[in-house]
């Protein structure tokens, strides 16, 4: 009888533990879900660049690449001190383009494709312009967004 009793006690103790584990396996994911991830919020059609104008200025090529959704972007500081951003993927065969401050152009080294600073293809194989993005500087932070038609 007492044997039976301790067995029953053990089982009900186990059931209690199981119920707790059950609640845990529901509450834990839900709680983790509610903890905001590092990146804060879904990036939509705008990104805040993780660097400042002076860092671009410090670059030898006066330009930096950045991630924009699934694509790579290029932001350049023109001779006039203007910031321009565009897709960094050459429209010819997908090489990454670079700023050539010496020539005042965007240059693709793969086949000498050239674009002007507005992303327009001006010579060489590229068949299309680079997509140009909109740049906004607010209190020292740089925001890049896609044109919304």
């Amino acid at each position: 009888m007492s044997d039976n009793n301790s067995r029953r006690n053990f089982l009900s103790w186990l059931t209690g533990l199981g119920s707790l584990a059950f609640l845990g396996s529901i509450i834990y994911p839900a709680y983790k879900f509610l903890v905001p991830p590092e990146s804060g919020e879904a990036n939509v059609s705008q990104v805040k660049l993780p660097f400042t104008r002076s860092e671009i200025e410090g670059e030898e090529k006066k330009a930096k690449t950045f991630k924009f959704g699934r694509t790579l972007g290029l932001i350049v500081l023109t001779g006039e001190g203007e910031l321009k951003a565009m897709s960094a993927t050459c429209t010819h065969l997908d090489c990454t383009v670079q700023h050539r401050p010496d020539l005042g152009i965007i240059w693709c080294s793969c086949h000498n494709g050239r674009y002007d600073l507005d992303g327009k293809n001006i010579s060489g194989p590229p068949p299309k312009p680079l997509e140009l993005y909109i740049v906004n500087e607010i209190k020292g932070e740089i925001f890049v967004s896609k044109e919304t038609a």
Partner: peptide, 9 residues
């Protein structure tokens, strides 16, 4: 496993 155990109980 936890769910199965509870279901069994």
């Amino acid at each position: 496993l936890v769910i199965t155990f509870l279901a069994f109980m």
